[in-house]
Amino acid sequence: MTLYKDVDVRTLLRKGGEPFRLIMAALETLAPGQGLRILSTFEPKPLYRVMSERGFDHAARPLTDGDWEVTFTPSASVPPVAVSRGGEDATDWADPIFHLDLSALEAPEPMVRILRQIDLMEPDEVLFAVLDREPVFLLPELERRGHRWVCAADEARTTWRLLVRVGEETVS
């Protein structure tokens, strides 16, 4: 079953605001496998194409007062998600407080930067990172240090999205 993150852009729209950036920002914070539910004052058709390119299917439903509810669900063809011990509840984690783009860095640099950042964070805080290779050596090391993580690749396996929830680290 897919869990959804709710984004209500109706107030913003009624004030004449532009919701696209808000929605894209929400998209960046999704756990792998998580979907997005948008409440809007109109059917946001332009979004369908954008979201489809990012691997989401959509389903739209008109609400009673002329508003619309649209759910975006990760497409079934997206590769499976790898999860650490205790990482199954990732959809309930807090929003990430750090976003790291670690593509175009040579190993082991992405791994070092993530662990360096985590060392500055408090337990239960969440970090989000984008990598261009599967961080195969990092994942067991995170677990060894008591952190939880979720990691998923895009369909072409060119980008990996990693979510880490900091654990009660034992100093060694």
């Binding site: 190993a107 082991p108 791994m111 070092v112 930067r113 993530i114 662990l115 360096r116 950042q117 985590i118 060392d119 050596f137 090391e141 060694s172």
Partner: peptide
């Protein structure tokens, strides 16, 4: 060098 780095510095990387 990569495996040696990982062996010796892996446990303290980031710290």
């Amino acid at each position: 060098p990569f495996l040696t780095w990982l062996e010796y510095f892996g446990p303290v990387m980031g710290r």
